[in-house]
């Protein structure tokens, strides 16, 4: 199939950036979206134009490296999938595709479609862990965990830190990402001792960097792991409780 791409090109952080139009010809519908870009890049390289830079690694929808706005939707039209798992059969021959990088104040563009998502790490550093040193763990089966709790914690733990929730949210909020980690650890017995400390610290860091939540639910819709917004309510509850507990 043949497509017309409008791709955001930006040589560096300081460059203004612009859209450039490319033709993608003879693309197999079985190719993944990134493989389609590979083909385009081969062509560009031959023509002496620098290939389109985009982040990717596992190409299995698990490392969270890939991600771009495809026709105005993070990770493209097929919900619940990362860009690398989006396949060209989702498009029609002759389609026009607009490709733009994630946009948020704290996600500056590094080059073309690559942005700096390190602020998400900062939220984890604020408390997204259980403080247990290597070697001090108890025998694993000494704390049984109800299957239901474990399953829900797992739903939250599936987050791949791709940043699509931020990218898609009209408010540029990182609520879903933060809430997922708060829920993952807050649900499990191991996470209890630091539960309220954690939520306050993570929320306050999130708040310095990102927007607010108006419950648009856009994040849930584009999340490659379909993490439910209910976790956001859970985070709000824990935060309120924590504030009243700690004063």
């Amino acid at each position: 199939m043949n497509l017309t791409l409008h791709v955001w090109r930006q040589t560096s952080r300081d460059d203004a950036g612009r859209f450039v139009t490319y033709k993608a010809e003879g693309i197999s519908p079985d190719a993944s979206f990134l493989e389609m870009l590979d083909v385009v890049n081969e062509g560009l390289n031959d023509r002496g134009e620098q290939p389109i830079h985009f982040e990717h690694d596992c190409r299995e929808g698990i490392c969270g490296s890939c991600g771009m706005m495809i026709n105005g939707v993070a990770h493209g039209p097929l919900g619940g999938t990362a860009t690398c798992q989006l396949h060209m059969r989702q498009f029609k021959d002759g389609d026009e595709i607009r490709i733009e990088p994630w946009r948020a104040r704290v996600f500056p563009v590094i080059k073309d479609l690559i942005v700096d998502r390190s602020p998400l790490d900062r939220i984890i550093q604020a408390g997204g862990y259980v403080s247990v040193n290597t070697g001090s763990a108890v025998e694993a089966n000494t704390l049984p965990i109800p299957k239901q709790i474990q399953e829900t914690a797992m739903d939250a733990a599936e987050c791949i830190q791709c940043g699509a929730c931020v990218a898609q949210c009209p408010n540029g909020a990182a609520q879903l990402f933060t809430a997922a980690k708060v829920a993952h650890l807050g649900l499990l017995p191991q996470g209890q001792p630091e539960r309220y400390e954690r939520v306050v610290n993570m929320v306050e860091t999130m708040d310095e960097l990102f927007g607010t939540c108006s419950l648009f639910r856009e994040c849930e819709a584009v999340c490659p792991k379909s993490i439910p917004v209910d976790f956001i309510a859970r985070m709000n509850r824990d935060y309120l409780v924590a504030k009243f507990k700690r004063g």
Binding site: N141, P144, K147
Partner: peptide
């Protein structure tokens, strides 16, 4: 065996039986 203990302590949500055991 220590690895599993360590991972569980960190909150790694390994699959579990209905009785809550790994």
């Amino acid at each position: 065996v220590n690895i599993i203990d360590q991972a569980v302590a960190q909150g790694v949500p390994f699959a579990r039986e209905y009785g809550g055991q790994l």
